[in-house]
């Protein structure tokens, strides 16, 4: 019995291995070819860093990368603040008027096709006569990514033992104090994981940014996208590799955070 339940069949291992290979091989190949010395993307000409050097001489690409990093940092921070507040209201607010609309508004952007979000936000910005550029993209990204933060933080709050907050209040804390000194320290890992998720999502987005940005303020994905439409270029491979490396660093930090939050076991002791 135990063998069947815990043991892994050959079929299971094969499915898993093939699945992971499918997910990772293309990225590995891309990274390897970014070190290709040859100008022809498909011919291997030995190892080289020349395409990385090329990127650091490409003024337009550097500007776009800087723009993307700024948008990602600001929007992720705003999204974390708003998303955490939303999660607290949903997880601890009980029933309140407009709750269904609130949760609907927070969950649907997770699956909403980006062309719709992008177009609708642009029409709003035009109607408000807002100058399009850094802030419009930042607001758009905040709107999208705060929903992801809400989901991450809310599921952490849902798995937290409420009796801790209640004990703090029984011992004389007012609710705000109980939240700040008991709940908040426990959900900090989820909040930081939410920030990093928001950051990487913003760094990744091409569709919403295309709609909401203005002339002269393209983000890195917009630049990459317009280059990719023209075909494969070794410089793009190098840029992509750097983005992957950068995000990998962010993920390692995030996984440490989530390890701290012990998101594994649902009934894990909160302390």
């Amino acid at each position: 019995m135990a063998r069947r339940v815990n043991g892994i069949s050959r079929f299971n291992v094969t499915a898993l291995a093939l699945g992971l290979a499918f997910l990772y091989l293309p990225i590995v190949i891309l990274v390897i070819y970014s070190f290709n010395a040859s100008r022809l993307v498909t011919v291997w000409g030995g190892w080289s860093l020349r395409w990385y050097a090329e990127f650091f001489n490409d003024r337009a690409m550097l500007d776009a990368a800087w723009m993307s990093l700024r948008v990602a940092a600001v929007s992720a921070t705003l999204a974390t603040l708003l998303g955490t507040l939303g999660a607290v209201a949903l997880a601890r607010g009980g029933r309140f008027r407009g709750r269904a609309l609130f949760s609907g508004m927070l969950y649907s952007p997770l699956v909403m096709p980006e062309v719709i979000s992008g177009l609708s936000l642009l029409l709003l910005f035009v109607a408000l006569d807002a100058e399009r550029g850094f802030w419009t993209v930042t607001i758009a990204h905040t709107t999208l990514t705060m929903c992801f933060v809400t989901v991450v933080v809310q599921s952490r709050l849902a798995s937290l033992d409420r009796s801790l907050e209640e004990a703090a209040m029984d011992l004389g804390c007012d609710p705000v104090r109980a939240f700040l000194s008991v709940t908040l320290p426990l959900i900090i890992p989820a909040i930081s994981a939410g920030w990093m998720l928001a950051f990487t999502l913003s760094l990744d987005d091409v569709v919403i940014a295309s709609f909401t940005t203005g002339p002269g303020s393209a983000t890195l994905p917009i630049r990459i996208y317009s280059e990719v439409r023209l075909g494969v270029k070794p410089e793009i491979n190098a840029i992509c590799t750097m983005v992957i490396a950068f995000i990998a660093v962010v993920i390692v930090a995030a996984s440490f955070a989530s390890k701290l939050s012990s998101s594994q076991g649902e009934s894990a002791a909160p302390l």
């Binding site: 949903l90 309140f96 709107t143």
Partner: peptide
């Protein structure tokens, strides 16, 4: 008692989503 201030937390994200979504 905890639920009431938690509800107030909804105000900012609520307004944000109404305006931008």
């Amino acid at each position: 008692i905890f639920a009431r201030p938690a509800r107030y937390a909804a105000i900012a994200p609520y307004l944000w989503m109404v305006l931008f979504f």
